[in-house]
């Protein structure tokens, strides 16, 4: 397997290789050594390649990803897979804040916990978290699904649009306009499919559904600015 060592080359050289050499030489698998928490690893990918990052990543790992299947064998900093379009990013450890922020598509799998603002403003991405998510997760999330196998923090789903959240554990509090809704057969099937994709062994029957009550969709003059 092709192997690139970040103690020998810069992040810019790495990303240039991933953007230009990988498609040109039709490379199908590559590993990145000694990431040492560096930022912007494997950002802007647009090739069907399997990328293994051996260690902890910094900010924006796999940002804007298309097609690539990226696995981080460690933790990541802020904004992992932010604005992802397609493909898959898997984090073996924990993810810091704003994981999957504004993601349009693809799957983000976090095996550990995700910190605050997971899935903020997501636009179609699917996020599956093996652990718990922090406060303000899915704030203003527009489309896509977030599955949380652990607990959720304060203000979950504040000002949600059409994104749907499934939580297995406790929800500390719901944000404005977010509400728990009954699970349908379609919900159980969706959770099962997402858990299978992540390889997590949980029972879909244990999950509850959180979605928008849609009371903020239209301006209500009588609400007197209080929601």
């Amino acid at each position: 397997m092709e192997s690139l060592d970040l103690r020998k080359i810069s992040v810019r050289e790495l990303n240039r290789f991933l953007h230009q050499e990988v498609p040109a030489r039709n490379i199908r698998a590559i590993e990145i050594l000694n990431p040492d928490g560096k930022h912007n690893l494997a950002c802007g990918m647009d090739a069907p390649v399997k990328i293994d990052i051996r260690g902890h990543g910094g900010y924006y790992v796999g940002g804007m990803n298309k097609q690539a299947e990226i696995t981080v064998h460690g933790n990541v900093g802020w904004g992992v897979a932010e604005n992802m379009m397609s493909g898959c990013v898997r984090v073996k450890g924990f993810a810091s804040e704003s994981a999957g922020a504004s993601g349009h598509g693809g799957t983000l799998i976090i095996e550990g916990d995700a910190s605050l603002r997971c899935g903020i403003s997501m636009k179609g991405i699917d996020i599956v978290v093996g652990g718990s998510v922090g406060n303000f997760s899915c704030f203003m999330a527009q489309a896509g699904r977030l599955v949380v196998c652990g607990d959720a923090g304060d203000g979950l789903g504040d000002s949600l649009y059409e994104a749907v959240i499934y939580v297995r554990g406790k929800i500390k509090s719901l944000g404005a306009d977010a509400r728990e809704e009954p699970m349908t057969e379609a919900d159980y099937a969706a959770v099962k499919e997402l858990l299978d994709r992540a390889g997590f062994d949980c029972d879909p029957k244990e999950f509850k559904r959180v979605a928008s009550a849609k009371t903020l969709y239209n301006w209500n003059a009588d609400a007197n600015q209080e929601y």
Partner: peptide
């Protein structure tokens, strides 16, 4: 503030790593 400032520390990859809660 960020892990990249810890990456050089001895045996850091086996350290207990966590993010402090608010």
């Amino acid at each position: 503030s960020e892990f990249r400032s810890l990456a050089h520390l001895p045996d850091v990859n086996n350290a207990h790593l966590f993010e402090p809660m608010p």
